[in-house]
Amino acid sequence: MNFASVRMITDDVDRLVELYENVTGVSAERPAPVFAEFALPSCTLAIGHTQTTQLFGADSALGAHNRTVILEFRVADVEAEYVRLKAVVEDWVKEPTTIPWGNRSMLFRDPDGNLLNFFQPVTEDAMKRFSGRS
């Protein structure tokens, strides 16, 4: 089994697409105005409008209400990403800091309040943990 994608549901697809194009450096594929996908090397990040949830059942999702998931992106240089994104991100949660399990990490929220973590393994143990992963 392969983890294929994460889909976020929102009332404003265009607003999230704009931020995630800036964050990922990847242009979204837009097969429909209510749907976008970012094909990243390790996974696909999808964004769907709340109108699309009816396709999955009445109680399948509510846009912009999830506070239990952190989208995590491993990056080569957290400090450089912080400088690059400082003008784009409006809601910073934590500036770059080293966390106890050995990652250098920064956290911020997208316009819907979803939490994003950009991290870089910096200790020997953390680098070992991530060796061989995409």
Rank of each mutant, 00 (worst) to 15 (best):
A4K: 10
S5H: 15
I9W: 07
D12V: 09
V13R: 10
R15K: 14
L16T: 11
E18D: 10
Y20A: 01
E21C: 00
E21H: 01
S27N: 07
R30H: 02
P31I: 00
P31Q: 02
A32I: 02
P33R: 03
P33C: 10
V34I: 06
V34E: 14
A36C: 01
A36T: 00
A36F: 07
A36E: 00
F38N: 00
S42V: 08
C43I: 08
I47M: 02
H49N: 14
T50G: 08
T50L: 06
Q51G: 02
T52N: 14
L55I: 05
A58V: 11
A58H: 03
A58I: 04
A61N: 04
A64L: 09
N66S: 10
R67C: 12
L71S: 13
E72S: 11
F73V: 15
R74H: 04
V75Q: 07
A76E: 09
D77K: 10
D77W: 12
V78H: 03
A80Q: 11
E81L: 12
E81K: 06
E81D: 15
V83I: 14
R84N: 09
L85P: 00
K86D: 13
K86E: 14
E90H: 12
K94W: 14
T97C: 10
T98E: 15
T98P: 04
I99M: 12
P100W: 07
N103V: 14
F108W: 11
R109I: 08
R109K: 13
D110Y: 13
D110S: 11
D112N: 06
G113A: 07
N117G: 09
F119P: 01
Q120I: 08
Q120E: 15
T123A: 11
T123Y: 12
D125Q: 15
F130L: 00
F130P: 00
S131I: 00
G132E: 01
R133P: 03
S134E: 03
S134I: 11
